[in-house]
Design a protein around this nucleic acid. Structure first.
Length: 268
DNA sequence: AACGAGACCTGGCAGC
DNA sequence: TGCTGCCAGGTCTCGT
């Protein structure tokens, strides 16, 4: 979202939908709705980017919801360029800038919420848990939410209805930093460990944001440069390598069909 | 209500 | 070189 912030205030000249097939079809009404409107505000909720548009009179027209899924990438181009294979969607602006959405795996989404409807009430947004970096996300809150959950703690903190923003990498990293075993049933995590976990989730995400995002193959910042310098992980992707704390080999298991990494010596 | 599995996709890589 | 199988950062939907 920060990468495309320079576009705020710009007027849309054209929308191109090359391949409407994302997680849901890109609404074709954008072709008529967006041109001549102005991008008035960019915000974010969970992993959804919310782009608000005004008409020439400054009246709110609606909000574009963008999600990058697993492989999505937003490119901010200074001028039009030949589109590549998985370039699904463009917004061209009057000053020449182009916002381009590329998503090989098509798990991303482009949705439209009309101006007379509430984004907060949108089915994808309404049921989301708190933002992890907000003060409302506390150890108390987490502890209360876990009372009736028997699923593993790692599964629980990745549930966006409980708290948003904790993806597969940062779930493993946060649990290591809090010294919590990912297999622990959620309702067996003590109050004190909940406090610690919340504080480590906040610290993990804050430092990742500071470093600029995740340095994985197909993630790039809006300027086309890799999201960051290689971030060093405590456990993620370090199967059989020595724990940075105790030198025991890092374990890899499957939870909910996703890989989990942890140190069996350090995490209880 | 909560859980687990399945679903959606392409591309990169290891192993044969 | 080419094939096969496995793996990947997300999250909704469905059956139990």
């Amino acid at each position: 979202m920060r990468g495309i912030a320079p576009l705020v205030g710009q007027v849309v000249s054209q929308v191109i939908i090359r391949y409407p097939t994302l997680r849901w079809p890109i609404p074709s009404q954008l072709l008529e709705t967006l041109p001549h409107t102005r991008l008035s505000r960019l915000t974010r909720r969970a992993k959804y980017i919310l782009a608000e548009f005004n008409n020439a009179k400054g009246v709110h027209i609606g909000t574009l919801i963008l999600h990058l899924g697993m492989s999505g990438r937003i490119c901010l181009l200074a001028q039009d360029e030949v589109a590549a294979k998985h370039d699904h969607f463009d917004i061209h602006f009057a000053d020449g800038h182009v916002l381009r959405l590329r998503d090989p795996r098509r798990f991303g989404a482009v949705l439209w919420v009309d101006g007379h409807e509430s984004v907060a009430e949108h089915p994808l947004i309404k049921t989301l848990g708190p933002e992890p970096l907000k003060t409302s996300f506390t150890g108390d809150y987490l502890y209360c939410q876990l009372r009736n959950k028997t699923a593993a703690i790692k599964i629980a903190i990745m549930d966006s209805h409980l708290v948003v923003g904790v993806g597969n990498i940062y779930a493993s990293e946060s649990l290591f930093r809090a010294r919590v075993n990912p297999k622990t049933p959620a309702n067996k995590v003590s109050k004190a460990k909940c406090e610690r976990l919340v504080s480590e989730i906040k610290a993990t995400l804050a430092s990742a944001i500071d470093a600029g995002g995740s340095s994985l193959r197909d993630f790039f910042g809006a300027d086309g440069n890799p999201g960051y310098f290689q971030q060093t992980y405590f456990v993620y992707g370090r199967t059989d390598q020595p724990c940075r704390e105790c030198s025991a080999p890092i374990s890899q298991i499957k939870q909910g069909q996703r890989s989990t990494f942890y140190c069996a010596e350090c995490q209880h």
